[in-house]
Nucleic acid binder design. Structure first.
Lengths: 151, 151
DNA sequence: CTCTCTGCAAAGTATTTGCAGACTA
DNA sequence: TAGTCTGCAAATACTTTGCAGAGAG
């Protein structure tokens, strides 16, 4: 079984993007991307978690392949790599509309909230321009204590 | 020998902070902190680099101790842990005056520039407040291509 | 059919830990 | 002296890679 994917929005572009480079659309790659799509955009998963969540859905994808696939999907722009505090990098679904967003992370319990901010994006763009860099992506990480961890 | 440390600004507070918790001021801990102080605040070092730089100054500190010390100093607030893109976390001297600053990183060659931005700090503070979080620190990471890597 | 992909297991990095002796307070 | 710290080496976590067979186009 595969996750119920009514119209499989990204499937088409995934296949297309892969074929452009002579790569192939495999069930494993579909499964990983679909997992993120069904979890929604606020979901930050590590390689290990992707592997386990797929396993719990009876979808076997080896951990090595998960790693390879996460990197591939991130390179292709379907996923975005996060650099939050804890060890282990995480990935989330990239927004098609290129709307960068930011993270508020509780350093104690790891709870993560997302938010957007126009001024932040502009500040990033300004800084890049000022140093002659070509902007790719900017993200603000706010380290904080959530209400439950403040005592 | 130790690095020429005219008035050893942090030495006192390092010793004090350590003693508060029953910990001790050792040459190794002093060496690590002094390295950062002499490199200045714009310097981002990994554990491995700290180890090598100390070694090149004839100051022997084992790599394991460097790791332990970096974590200790970061917990005590003397150093700040960075989460830039490349594998391997880095540390920099924490600003006593709590002036957060941000990083512009070339994803190809790793060149890193720093900048400050008032609007970014405000956006971070706003977001924290909005979710009821207590702000600790916010940093904007801008991923980009530097002039040399743009072709 | 051809050439890419996967799974496995082994190899790498990066970082942490156990322990006996060294050293600070 | 008492208890913390260090260095070493082994252990652990995370990620990548080599290779032979499976599978997409």
């Amino acid at each position: 079984m595969s996750l119920p994917s009514p119209s499989a929005p990204a499937d088409g572009s995934l296949q297309q993007g892969l074929h452009q480079d002579g790569r192939r659309l495999t069930p494993q790659r579909k499964r990983v991307l679909e997992l993120f799509e069904h979890r929604g955009s606020g979901c930050h998963l590590s390689a290990e978690e992707v592997h386990q969540q797929l396993a719990s859905l009876q979808l076997k994808v080896s951990l090595a392949t998960v790693y390879r696939t996460l990197r591939l999907l991130a390179d292709m722009g379907f996923l975005q790599e996060l650099e939050l505090s804890e060890g282990g990098r995480r990935f989330e679904l990239a927004h098609g509309d290129h709307r960068d967003h930011h993270h508020l992370v509780c350093i104690r319990c790891g709870r993560t909230e997302e938010f957007e901010s126009e001024p932040v994006l502009m500040a990033g763009a300004d800084a890049a321009q000022q140093f002659g860099f070509k902007l790719i992506e900017s993200s603000l990480n706010v380290r904080a204590l959530c209400p439950n961890c403040q005592d």
